[in-house]
Amino acid sequence: MSDSNTTKFANPSTFILLGIPGLEAAYVWLSIPFCAIYAIALFGNFIILFIVKFEPSLHEPMYYFLCMLAIIDLVLSTSTLPKMLSIFWFNSREIDFRACLTQLYFLHCFAVMESGIFMAMALDRYVAICHPLRHSIILRNPVVAKISLAVILRGSIIILPYPFLVRRLQYCRTNIIPHTHCEHIYMVKLACGDISISNYYGLFVQFCGKWVDMIFIAMSYFEILRAIFKLPTKDAWLKTFGTCGSHLCAILAFYIPSFFSSFTQRFGQNLPLHFQVLIANVYLLIPRMLNPIIYGVRTRQIRQRLLRFFVCGSKI
C-alpha cells in the first residue's frame, strides 16, 4: 500500500480495490462465471458488429444504433472485467489514482451513452410504427448521425465533472475502495469534509442521464401502443408489437439492475456490503452479455444471417 490509511492527502498516488469484501475465499469460483460472462459479451457483440457490417439489408437506423450499443457494451465490460479478474486471480488490488479516475469516467460516461442509445432506438420504433411511410424520410442517415453524435456528446459532457469533483476531495480516512472498480459514490464516501456537491451532482446525472431517457421511452411506447390498438386484427397487433420485443427486453435488462443498484448504493446501508457490490457488478456485466443474445435470438435478419454463416462455414 503506497499511502498511509491515516495520513491526510488530497491526491493519493494509488487506491486499493478490495474486490468483493467478505467473499475472498470464493474468488476463484466467482471468477468462473464472471470470465464466462466477459467472453460471451465480447464474442456476442463482435458478432453483432460483423453481421451488421457485412449484411446490406441491415444498413438501417435501428441496426446502426445496435452497432453503437455493441461498441458501448464492449467498452463497459472491458473497462471493469480485466481488473476484477486480476483481483480474483492475482490479488492485484492497487490501481493508480489517474487510472482510477479514467475508469470512473469511462464507466459512467458509457452507461449514460447506453441509456441514450435505448432512447434513440425507442424513437426509431416510434417512427417505424406510427409513421411507417415516412420512416426513411424522417430517419435519414444524416439525422441518425446527428442523433448518435448528440448521444455521445451528452454522455461525455455530463460525466466530465465527475473526475474533477473526485480529484478535489481530500482523503484523510483511507484509500481503500470496498469494490471491484472505481465507482463514483464509493470514492466520494471515502473523502473527508463536505461532499454535498458530489452527491447532488450524482443525483443530477441520474436524472438527466437515465430518468429523462425513461420518460421519453415511456412516451414513445405510449404512442406505439395507441397506434397498435388501432390496427384491425389481433394478429396485426402481435406482429407489429413483436418488432419491439428485442428492444423492450434490452431496456428491462439495462434499467432494472441499474435502478436497483443505485437504490442499494444510496439507501441500502443495512444490506451486506458484498451483496451491494455483487448487485453493482450484475448491473455492469449481465446487460453486456444479454444484449447481443436478445437481438440475435429475437431479430429475424440477424438470426438468419448468423445461421447462414455457420451453415456455410460447416460446408467448407
Rank of each mutant, 00 (worst) to 15 (best):
F229N: 13
R167D: 13
L42W: 13
L273V: 14
M219W: 11
D213S: 10
R266G: 03
C244E: 07
I228R: 05
R308T: 10
Y221C: 05
A39Y: 05
I195S: 09
C182Y: 04
S57K: 15
I302D: 02
A10I: 07
P287S: 07
C208V: 14
S2L: 11
F97P: 00
S220D: 10
I286Q: 01
F216H: 07
A120Y: 00
L169K: 07
C192N: 12
L238D: 09
D124N: 15
D3F: 11
R125E: 03
L290C: 10
N5E: 15
K53F: 12
R167T: 04
T6C: 09
P142G: 09
T180P: 02
T299K: 02
L165D: 03
D235K: 13
S57D: 14
E55R: 11
L190E: 02
P163W: 08
L169N: 09
F310H: 05
P21Y: 05
P132C: 08
I40W: 04
F260I: 14
Q276Y: 01
L290W: 02
V144N: 01
A111H: 00
L149A: 15
M1I: 10
L248D: 04
A111M: 04
G242V: 10
T6I: 08
V127L: 06
P178K: 11
P61M: 05
I217W: 00
H135E: 09
V143D: 01
L49G: 07
I72N: 07
S92Q: 13
D124Y: 07
A150C: 12
L190P: 04
G202A: 07
L203Y: 13
D235M: 08
S196W: 03
L30H: 09
T264Q: 10
L231H: 02
V297D: 00
N175E: 02
K8G: 09
K315Y: 06
I95N: 00
Y126T: 05
A36W: 06
M62E: 06
L252A: 15
N175K: 08
T14H: 13
A99C: 09
R298M: 14
R300S: 10
L30K: 08
C182I: 03
L42K: 08
R173K: 15
I177A: 08
S79V: 08
I138Q: 05
V52C: 14
I286F: 10
R168P: 00
I87P: 02
L30D: 08
F216L: 14
A26P: 00
Y38H: 12
F46Q: 05
L252S: 11
M119N: 04
P178W: 07
L284M: 13
I224A: 01
S258V: 00
E114W: 00
L190D: 03
S220E: 02
R168D: 13
I177R: 04
R98Y: 12
M84L: 14
M1L: 12
L74V: 02
I157L: 15
L30E: 06
I158A: 06
S136Q: 13
L139H: 02
Y200S: 13
V205G: 03
L85M: 15
Y105V: 03
I152Q: 01
C182A: 14
V28S: 15
L190G: 04
